[in-house]
Design a protein around this nucleic acid. Structure first.
Lengths: 243, 243
DNA sequence: CGACATGTTGAACCTCATCAACCGACGTGG
DNA sequence: CCACGTCGGTTGATGAGGTTCAACATGTCG
């Protein structure tokens, strides 16, 4: 299940990394960054593979370099809920506990920059500015979680789907960097299957599918193929999402 | 609306405070604590009054001494969702941004130990261990938020209400300290109205009411009065809550 | 090719929202 | 003092939004 490859980073890789000033590493200066680089290693996962299991020890933290991670929780009878998505530059892992509070899965093919659990926590202790950065990112993760609680508790199916698509337009540049800054209607691949979308929005796949065709008929979006979306009317999408 | 009273704490109040080792202050030793005490002041709010408005600057942080705070988000058309509750020892406020991301209201009569926004952030900078503690508490807040996302997205009305009551049994000692360690069935006051419960669970008041009478008929709980609950079968409640 | 996974569409059903009536407690003012 | 309105809560009848079950389409892989 763990379809992982490990690659040692070349010297100075952190300095030239595209995430240098966008991920948690931004908290450290170039010399401090060496400490982080020394414990870092690349990891890859294929879409659909499991990165960490709920309730089991997770032995590393990671920056998302590429791809999308879904964090899911499950009830005893199998009902699932995705409780968060991680995009490039986001930080994966739960500090200060050994057992993951949720399952982490690669929603798409995935590249991580990983740090062993205990080594990273030592660095957190050594560099308060790193811990500060982690606090900042945790706080904004909490903000988005609460935004999503509003969606799950109070929005209609149509609003939910529109909200999700709208969220993607804001992060499309990150999840599919090849497509940024283009003219014309915004086009991007959906990082999630219908099943995943349903689990993220608290709906069933059928309802998700129906709402997508509904948005299509309204001319707000169109589908290049079932996994590639084109947003024709971003304004309308925003209105419908009701946020 | 802001029914607030301010009281200067007496010298050494922090050392003898019941929250000394349970709230964020636990991160500081007695001498460091003086720095915190110097900027702290008591605040009181009556049930139903507003502590902070969504999108408006919140000029202080606070420990909850007594009572329950609800954090709510609202859609344009008035639909509301409670995105979190704060009980005694919990920390109120969003560090590193000036504007509150949600509205904070006193669900019950409320006592706070408040710290001016900028002074407290200076202390966070001065004492990394304080920031560490705040990170720990933010992370566990995020854990509970995600637990709630599972509830909002995937649980039935009955499971939702049972989950909420079960949550209260776990925090009843905090919200109603007078009632801890007693024999017999666990009895405690509901800190929320039916409307608030509905907004917390993503339901309507009618559904909440019906599910409560349902649990009553099953013999899992009984109502002393509409705002005082007695849990007859904690095991059953846990089973029904499905978590 | 058949088997399987992913997605769409239709029909029937059900949970929960909506609308409405009612109750008791409380406060207020004639 | 009682009539009145208000607020929080309960209960009933009705209906809609989403789920469930089912069939079908499409694409992929052995």
């Amino acid at each position: 299940m763990h379809a992982t490859r490990q690659v040692a980073p070349s010297m100075g890789a952190c300095q030239t990394c595209g995430l240098r000033h966008r991920a948690v590493c931004a908290a450290l200066n170039d010399t401090e960054l060496d400490d982080l680089q020394r414990i870092s290693h690349r990891k890859s996962f294929e879409a659909g593979t499991t990165v960490a299991l709920e309730g089991e020890p997770m032995d590393y933290f990671a920056n998302i370099l590429n791809g999308v991670v879904k964090m899911t929780k499950t009830l005893a009878d199998g009902r699932q809920q995705i409780v968060g998505l991680l995009f490039p530059t986001d930080f994966l892992g739960r500090a200060f506990v050994t057992e993951a509070p949720y399952r982490a899965e690669a929603a798409t093919d995935l590249e991580l920059c990983a740090f062993p659990h205990s080594s990273f926590e030592q660095l957190l202790h050594k560099y308060p500015q790193l811990e500060h950065r982690l606090l900042e990112s945790t706080l904004s993760e909490l903000d988005t979680a609460r935004e999503w609680m509003l969606l799950l508790g109070r929005k209609t199916a149509e609003e939910k789907v529109a909200s999700f698509l709208h969220l993607l337009t804001k992060r499309a540049d990150l999840s599919a960097p090849c497509n940024a800054n283009q003219d014309g209607p915004l086009r991007f691949p959906l990082p999630l299957t219908r099943t995943d979308m349903a689990d993220y929005l608290g709906l069933t796949i059928e309802t998700v599918s129906r709402q997508i065709t509904r948005l299509k008929k309204q001319g707000v979006i169109s589908l290049v193929d079932s996994r590639t979306i084109e947003v024709a009317a971003l304004e309308d999408l925003e209105d419908i999402s009701g946020g």
